[in-house]
Design a protein around this nucleic acid. Sequence first.
RNA 1: GCCGACAUAGCUCAGUUGGCUAGAGCAGCUGAUUUGUAAUCAGCAGGCCCGGGGUUCAAAUCCUCGUGUCGGCACCA
Length: 602
Amino acid sequence: MSAIAIKHNDEIVDLVTAQEQGIEGEEIELDNSPEALDVLRHSTAHLMAQAIKSLYPDAQFFVGPTVKEGFYYDFKTEAEIGEADLKKIEKQMLSFAKKKYKIEKYAISKAEAQEKFKDDPLKLAVMKRIPDETVSIYKQGEFEDLCRGPHLPSIGLIRYFKLTKIAGAYLGGDSKNEMLTRIYGIAFATKDALKAHMDMLAEAEKRDHRKLGNEMKLFTFREEVGAGFPIWLPAGGRLRARLESLLFKAHRKRGYEPVRGPEMLRSDLWKTSGHYQNYGENMYFTNIDEIEFGVKPMNCVGHIKVYEDELHSYRDLPIKYFEYGVVHRHEMTGALHGLFRVREFTQDDAHIFCTVDQIEEQIIEVIDFVHKIMTTFGFEYKMMISTKPEKAVGDAEVWEKSEAALKSAMEKHNLDYDIDEGGGAFYGPKIDIKILDAIGREWQCGTVQLDNNLPARFELEYNGEGNEKIQPVMIHRAILGSFERFIGILTEHYAGEFPMFIAPTQVAIVPVAESHKEYAKELSDKLIDINADSEIYAKNDSLNKRIRTAEKTRVPMIAVVGDEEIENKTVSIRDRRTREQYTLSQEEFLSLIQTKINEVNF
RNA sequence: GCCGACAUAGCUCAGUUGGCUAGAGCAGCUGAUUUGUAAUCAGCAGGCCCGGGGUUCAAAUCCUCGUGUCGGCACCA
């Protein structure tokens, strides 16, 4: 195999450039290494542009970078391009690739380039973003493009690629600008790698919570109900109830008090909190008796009212309130996505009111809570500290102190974290928890946010040692984020095969014949006593059919009972997916289920 | 909100260039069968073809405005 590029001082340069400038370094070969793929995909983007240009001669191109999952190119054409056209473009790309055009490069001054592309506003826009005085042009066959490279020596090396999506994208990523057409694609050095990637996409599709949620009857949406308002079906209701009850205990152990605020509050309160001004566009309002009310988009204000219900001493702090708080946020139509982005959802929300000195230990306690939950579900996770954004309230000193507290908490406990500069909420810095699911995808769930703003706006206070009035710090935190989103993620993580402790149904009981129904019912009652749900499959269908039906619900365990089992007081167990069968006594069976349910303890 | 695609039975999907009474599988109901570890057989019932407006002798099919869904972009306090 020969080199496709040179790595020099951690920079990848293409062969043309290396030769031209006499650069020497490590040779990059065309394999599936990140460096090689980056070059390959970049050139594939150009090949795609070449194909598009030949099929749609009026096409003008903006930028075509490589991204995490491949590459894309943004362009503009009068022609209407749809999904169906991707195949056509792919075909054209292959035919160009077969011609094995060399990818040539030459440099011209920016002024020359501006002259050259004077009829192409998109290219001129690209050039505006380039500070250099000289720009490089890459050329393959008739096709030329302004580009910094690096590129393959020849498009003949491009063989294993696929165009995956077509979509609109704002020029320069700014919604004030016009919208261009964007085509996404992926390329690999080998056929196997491409296939593996396509298989991974197919696997992700199989796990899609919207598909599984429908199949498993977890939840649904209905047009007449309204976009973004999920409807929880019985199976989903049971799953969710299990999660809620596990989490309830975990909160109580850590000293959180369950509270509940109203679903809507007078708008004056939202004006005090600042939500009216900052977030009002996304809130639901209603007017009655000439008073305006706002449906809560978060639970803080309710908890603040709980805090205000009595006077507090420094001796009482920290005070922790929690609530499965239902909130409404009018998300934009295009943002809605299954359970991941909805307009009504329930947060596992809590607010900790504490002294400045207590911030650090409280943060650590929350992080430990997060750790227990995430590892129980088999998620790896990482944390990110987000600092002061441009649009921020509160004075700079408080911001600095809060950010420092977060960082020092992490560092003292040797916890790894990344920093997202300027990614904080307008009222304080935060720690976000990003989890990694079973197939390596990243999700943002929990968040811990420091807030000095609301305590000030609502003039919260507690009595200090010398009976002086002190403003407490408020820590907002959610661990799952929302039940909706988290259950969506769990569904995809487990591919619908929920572990016993969270599964909507723990056991499917299949009586062999009519005469065994009574024993099945007896088992089912005993299961309820140990907090396990079961379903009896006693329909007038063949045994095989009922086992098949039960299997398809992805229930963790099937218990078959017939004459033998009744006589010996046993159950015949069939584990999910494996065809393994074994017999247990009733006691063994019940204690096994009980153990599996109880082994989880956050 | 923006660009593009799509919407047919509870679910998954057929339905030709506008043209007979809009079909199938699964699920449901009724009956027969009473089953030992992934689909027993037969019969029946299911549709304002997403909604409003239009074009046409004729619309599931074409146009238009909504609603919803999907892929992205933008957004996510």
